[in-house]
Simulated assay, not measured.
Amino acid sequence: MSFKTLGAVCALSIATVGAAWAEYPERAINMVIPYGAGGATDISARTIAEPLGAAVGKPLVMANVTGAGGATGSVAVQNAKPDGYTMLFARVGSHSVNPAMKATLPYTLDDFRFVTVYEINPFACVVSTNSDIMSMEDALAAAQGDGLSFSSSGVGSGPHLAATMVLDAFGLEDAANAAIHIPQQGGGAAATAVLNGTADFLCTNTSALVGFVSNGQMRPLLVTTADPVAGFDAPTATSLGHPELEQMVGWTGIAGPADLPDDVAAKWGDWMSAAAGDAEFVEKMEARGSIIRVMSPEEANTFIRAQYETFRKLVDDLGMRIEG
Rank of each mutant, 00 (worst) to 15 (best):
Ala71Leu: 09
Glu50Tyr: 08
Met62Cys: 12
Val61Gly: 04
Pro59Lys: 05
Gly36Val: 13
Ala40Leu: 07
Lys58Cys: 11
Asn64Leu: 04
Ala76His: 11
Lys58Met: 12
Met62Thr: 12
Ile43Glu: 00
Val65Pro: 01
Pro34Lys: 06
Ala54Phe: 07
Gly39Ile: 11
Ile43Ala: 01
Ala37Asp: 13
Lys58Asp: 10
Ala45Gly: 05
Val61Lys: 14
Ile48Phe: 08
Glu50Pro: 09
Asn64Glu: 12
Pro51Met: 02
Asp42Asn: 12
Asn64Lys: 04
Ser74Val: 08
Thr41Met: 03
Gly70Thr: 14
Pro59Asn: 10
Ser44Met: 13
Ala76Thr: 15
Ala45Trp: 00
Thr66Gln: 10
Gly53His: 06
Leu60Gly: 05
Arg46Pro: 04
Ala49His: 08
Gly67Trp: 02
Ile48Asn: 01
Ala76Lys: 15
Gly69Pro: 00
Thr66Leu: 06
Glu50Ser: 15
Ala54Pro: 08
Thr66Glu: 13
Gly57Asp: 07
Lys58Glu: 13
Tyr35Asp: 13
Gly57Cys: 09
Val61His: 12
Ala76Trp: 10
Pro51Ser: 10
Asn64Pro: 10
Thr72Ala: 15
Ala49Asp: 10
Ala40Gly: 13
Leu60Ser: 02
Thr72Ile: 15
Ile43Tyr: 00
Gly69Ser: 07
Arg46Phe: 08
Tyr35Ile: 14
Gly36Leu: 07
Ser44Cys: 15
Pro34Thr: 13
Thr72Leu: 09
Gly69Arg: 03
Ala63Leu: 12
Gly70Pro: 04
Thr47Met: 08
Ala45Asn: 04
Val61Trp: 08
Val65Ala: 05
Ala76Asn: 09
Ala40Asp: 10
Ser74Leu: 04
Val61Arg: 13
Gly69Phe: 01
Met62Arg: 04
Val61Thr: 15
Gly57Arg: 09
Pro51Arg: 02
Thr66Phe: 06
Ala68Gln: 14
Gly57Ile: 12
Thr72Arg: 11
Ala45Val: 07
Leu52Gln: 03
Gly39Thr: 10
Ile43Pro: 00
Leu60Trp: 02
Gly38Glu: 06
Leu60His: 02
Val75Gly: 04
Gly36Lys: 02
Met62Leu: 15
Thr41Asp: 07
Asn64Phe: 05
Ala63Phe: 09
Gly73Leu: 04
Ser74Trp: 04
Gly67Asn: 06
Thr41Leu: 01
Ser44Arg: 03
Ala49Val: 10
Ile43Gln: 00
